[in-house]
């Protein structure tokens, strides 16, 4: 039986008086890929950023309701601890430009002041780069800057950086929108491999990507979670007319 890892109950988020996430109730099962889709401004990215408490970094941003990981309230935990458990990868590959590939992977440890023996650092770097299918491509260039890599490789390096912290959940905000189709395909294949060890929540504008890569899909519209179901059902027999209109391109 699948167990829930992330759960939102009556969750709301606002920017000042602008209520952007409205009473969201959702249960995200462990080791699944979840796609979050919806038109621009529907609240999907804000919701994602609430999961690892990045929303509150914006002045005037507030949230309410329950958001748990393994039944523990995320908002009762220290934000740094939350972000160790819940890693995030952004739209544009953003490796630290002045750091080597090696140092990019273990940047999370360095930034958190965690000192590790060299052998352990080496193990983490190899393990993380292997997890994202990048090890073979860069193992002889670990001291080169991350910015020398192609866009797709840089994005996988960013995923390796998130994976290095051994999180339980990985959040992706439009992770392939800045990549070419071949790099996109590589990253999408990676999602299938990563879900054996992590729970993946992917915000995407690309409906076909949601269909291809996810086990379950959530459709947000005007801050509401309109529908959340198995991806196969969402794309063959959605229950809500708004979902149907959106995925068939009939949205007005």
């Amino acid at each position: 039986m699948e167990s829930t890892i992330i759960k939102s109950k009556g969750f709301n988020a606002s920017f000042g008086s602008n209520h952007v996430v409205k009473n969201v109730n959702i249960e995200i099962p462990r080791n699944h890929v979840i796609a979050v889709m919806g038109p621009s401004g529907c609240g999907k990215t804000t919701y994602l950023r609430c999961i690892n408490r990045m929303h509150e970094l914006i002045p005037g941003a507030t949230s309410s309701g329950e958001m748990t990981i393994n039944n523990e309230n995320i908002y009762d935990m220290h934000p740094i601890f939350v972000r160790q458990k819940i890693g995030m990868v952004f739209q544009r590959p953003n490796p630290f430009p002045n750091l080597s590939i090696y140092d990019n992977v273990i940047a999370g440890y360095k930034l958190n002041g965690i000192r590790l023996p060299k052998a352990e650092r080496d193990r983490i770097v190899e393990h993380s780069l292997t997890r994202v299918a990048l090890w073979k491509e860069v193992k002889d260039a670990l001291n080169k800057k991350g910015s020398f890599l192609s866009g797709g490789q840089q994005q996988r390096l960013c995923i390796a950086r998130a994976v290095a912290m051994e999180p339980e959940v990985l959040l992706f905000d439009e992770p392939t929108s800045a990549l070419d189709p071949i790099s996109t395909s590589t990253v999408e294949e990676l999602f299938h491999e990563l879900k054996a060890n992590y729970t993946l929540i992917i915000v995407t504008h690309n409906m076909q990507q949601a269909a291809r890569v996810s086990d379950k899909t959530a459709f947000f519209y005007m801050g509401e979670l309109v529908e959340y179901d198995e991806t196969k059902i969402m794309f063959t027999n959605p229950k809500d007319k708004r979902t149907q209109n959106y995925i068939t391109g009939r949205f007005s």
Binding site: Q208, A211, R212, T231, K232, F235, T236
Partner: peptide, 9 residues
């Protein structure tokens, strides 16, 4: 077949 049509275009 229906699922593959819907999910993979």
């Amino acid at each position: 077949c229906e699922n593959i049509f819907a999910l993979f275009c």
